[in-house]
């Protein structure tokens, strides 16, 4: 008893899904039929309803382009030029290189579409979701598709808005491939960070009218570098003998003091000499004794000093070699760039 109503509800839910999925496309088909029957108001309404469907049932790109083309044509035949231009402009924004079918639409409609396409400065950026290459190689190659001939500036910007590298500045026709080797303006590989591929479209006066920003998550895998060689103190020989009292000061002080006090009397024993020399003798002796007790330090060991200097020269040569090798390795950075969804900002409507 209870199973019957539940199965009916389940069937109804399952049946509703494909019915809703077909609705947007069916609305377009019905709109085309109405357009061909010259029910232009009804057709426009059906196209707008189809375009308004969101979610998983919404129109795919081809369906949206078809609906917008017919919507523009219907509005054109109804005499509403503004609505026609708006619909055609939406087509250009979705697909800059799209063409209306000359076999389906009359020449005055396709001519208006061409005019809208020419006046709408749009660039689409085509990139694979992930790009891997070695810094220095031109491995990052975004394809730019333009709606019409105009000026563009292509840069790779850092997250703070500063320009890491200017890739292109000039005119684009219908398509262009720009190259980036992963280096910044100074020629160094960019570090891991979030960047933005920025494509700025400009009007004939040079004023920016539209900016497309493509997030780039750059991961720079730096190669392993060699560790700097270390010259351990334990590898060096002692350059002075163990600490010792300054015996030389004591000997010098005593020799000078005693010499001053005694030798003059011995050399000139029969002369009356100045006692002032004893002051100087005492000064020399006291200075020597103080020097003995206050100055410490071993004798230099020249052989060890020379051996250590040779050791240091080898270490410095090794250090230079490692520094050169590391500098070479640092130029071999592997870059992995994850490309995000592009977003466009309109700065000025023509």
């Amino acid at each position: 008893m209870r199973l019957v109503p539940l199965s009916v509800v389940a069937l109804a839910v399952l049946a509703a899904q494909p019915a809703r999925a077909q609705t947007a496309a069916q609305l377009v088909d019905r709109g085309v039929e109405a357009y061909q029957d010259l029910d232009l108001g009804g057709a426009a309404g059906l196209f707008r309803r189809a375009l308004a469907v969101t979610g998983t049932d919404s129109l795919v790109l081809a369906g949206r382009l078809r609906a917008l083309g017919y919507l523009g044509a219907a509005e054109f035949l109804r005499g509403d030029r503004d609505s026609t231009v708006a619909a055609f402009r939406r087509i250009v924004l979705l697909s800059p290189r799209h063409r209306l079918d000359d076999l389906v639409f009359p020449p005055d409609i396709t001519a208006l579409y061409a005019e809208v396409q020419r006046d709408t400065k749009v660039v689409h950026v085509a990139l694979p979701p992930i790009v891997r290459f070695r810094a220095g190689d031109a491995g990052f190659r975004p394809q730019l598709l333009a709606s019409s001939f105009h000026q563009i500036v292509v840069t790779v910007d850092r997250s703070d808005g500063t320009t890491a590298r200017l890739l292109f500045q000039g005119l684009i026709g219908d398509s262009l491939e720009v190259l980036w080797d992963g280096l910044d303006g100074l020629g160094a590989p960019v570090p891991s960070a979030r960047y933005v591929l920025r494509v700025e479209s400009r009007d004939p006066a040079g004023e920016p009218v539209r900016i497309v920003r493509v997030p780039l998550d750059v991961r720079a895998a730096e190669p392993d570098t060699l560790p700097h060689p270390i010259l351990a103190d334990s590898a060096l020989l002692p350059e002075r003998s163990p600490e010792e009292r300054n015996v030389q000061a004591l000997i010098g002080g005593l020799a000078g003091g005693i010499g001053l006090a005694v030798l003059p009397s011995l050399l000139a024993s029969d002369s009356e000499l100045s006692p002032g020399r004893f002051v100087l003798a005492g000064s020399v002796t006291v200075a020597g004794v103080i020097g003995f007790f206050t100055q410490r330090g071993g004798r230099p060991l020249p052989a060890n000093v020379a051996a250590n200097e040779a050791q240091r020269q080898l270490w410095r040569a090794d250090l230079d070699r490692v520094a050169q090798e590391n500098a070479r390795r640092r130029t071999q950075v592997e870059l992995s760039i994850q490309v995000g969804a592009a977003a466009a900002v309109e700065l000025q409507r023509p």
């Binding site: 002080g253 020799a255 000078g256 001053l260 020399v284 020597g288 020097g291 100055q295």
Partner: peptide
């Protein structure tokens, strides 16, 4: 004989 009582500061000398 001449020796530094304090290295590079004070030196004494005696000569015969």
């Amino acid at each position: 004989l001449d020796t530094w009582l304090f290295p590079r500061v004070l030196r004494s000398a005696i000569e015969v």
